[in-house]
C-alpha cells in the first residue's frame, strides 16, 4: 500500500519534505516514525489525512501522515 509522508519544519532536516512510501499492510504510524528516526516524544502534532491521530493508528492505502515538531517560543 502507498502512504504519503509529509514533514514540517525541523523534521525535514536531513530527511525530506514529502515522500510516498510503499508499506506492508498493517503498518502503524509508530513504525513509520521508527523508520524516520523520529521519537514519538518529539512530535507535537501528528495527523493522518489531516486529522489528529495516534502513533498506534494502523495505516490504510492512500493515507497521508503529517508531522510537526513543538514550537513554544514567544
Amino acid at each position: 500500500m502507498k502512504v504519503e509522508i509529509r514533514l514540517f519544519a525541523t523534521f525535514r532536516n536531513g530527511r525530506f519534505k514529502k515522500e510516498v512510501w510503499d508499506l506492508p499492510e498493517g503498518t502503524k504510524v509508530k513504525d513509520v516514525l521508527d523508520r524516520l528516526g523520529i521519537n514519538p516524544e518529539e512530535v507535537a502534532i501528528l495527523l493522518v489525512n489531516g486529522l489528529d491521530a495516534d502513533p498506534e493508528r494502523v495505516l490504510q492505502d492512500g493515507d497521508y501522515i503529517s508531522l510537526f515538531p513543538p514550537v513554544g517560543g514567544g
Partner: peptide, 22 residues
C-alpha cells in the same frame, strides 16, 4: 494540552527567534 502534552520546550531552544517571525 493536546499539542504540548508533557513537553518542556520546543524547536526555539535550538533555533532561537529571528527578527521577522514574531
Amino acid at each position: 494540552t493536546k499539542i504540548y502534552r508533557e513537553k518542556k520546550s520546543g524547536i526555539e531552544q535550538a533555533l532561537g527567534n529571528p527578527p521577522f517571525t514574531p
